[in-house]
Design a protein around this nucleic acid. Sequence first.
DNA 1: CCTTGAACCTGCGGGC
DNA 2: TGCCCGCAGGTTCAAG
Length: 272
Amino acid sequence: MPELPEVETVRTGLEDALKGATIKKVELKRANLRFEFPEHFAKKLTGATIESIGRRAKYLLFHLDNCMVLIGHLGMTGRFSVEKPPKTYGKHDHVVFTLTDGRAVIYNDARRFGFMTLSSEKELSENVFLADLGPEPLEKEFSAKYLEIQLLRRSGPIKTVIMGQGLVVGVGNIYASEALFLAKIDPRKPAKKVADNSAELVKAIRAVLKDAIKSGGSSLRDFVQVSGESGYFQHHFNVYGRAGKPCITCHTPIKNLRMAGRSTFYCPHCQK
DNA sequence: CCTTGAACCTGCGGGC
DNA sequence: TGCCCGCAGGTTCAAG
């Protein structure tokens, strides 16, 4: 599910559902997801109360009352649902937290690119997964000036560069294409040469992400309660997944190509 | 340092 | 119906 807007949508839903909830039991249906669970994972979570749920980049941060933080990543296919304990669990239901109020928090992840780990509250910012991340795209630190400086020292194609989480977090494969369309920049253009357009690019990235968060929010309730798939593909994209279809602006067919192993969509006429 | 490509894993849809 | 191929929202690691 996961680019920043989807993770943010999940975060909001989980916080609504789980704030103040206490974990009574932790069940691991297998020894690992992408990584092994940390030592004493279940034990450290059992009895803890969830005080709040935050987000950094595409990571969910469950702040607990025992000075620990459960760090979760959804990978490509990770999903959380909060519901009455089902009679039987699905093939890819890997983690279950049973709450003291009887509800079950189920983490399902077919491809298992997601993972969970723990950090102390104190050492959170030095956590290996969080330490080297770039600024949040919707925060002030992600400014035109900052982006300009970053772009000037990169030689790779702009699309690949903005997807790197060290430069700015949260821009994944879909929204990279979408943001570049909005900013009218060819995804193949060397990052250096886009430095002059930093202000537009910052604006486009923010606009695309904000818009997606907004539309994700409306279908949120369904998302968390049922283990459904609302949100993502109901969203309308300008270029992503629209190869051969007319550009919404000039009607030129949208092109699709592969960059760094990822499919990329752009309008050859509008994006220079 | 930066960039690229392969790897991780499962499911789905298309073509034959 | 079934098999094979390519493809999918992300990140890490090794190597150039």
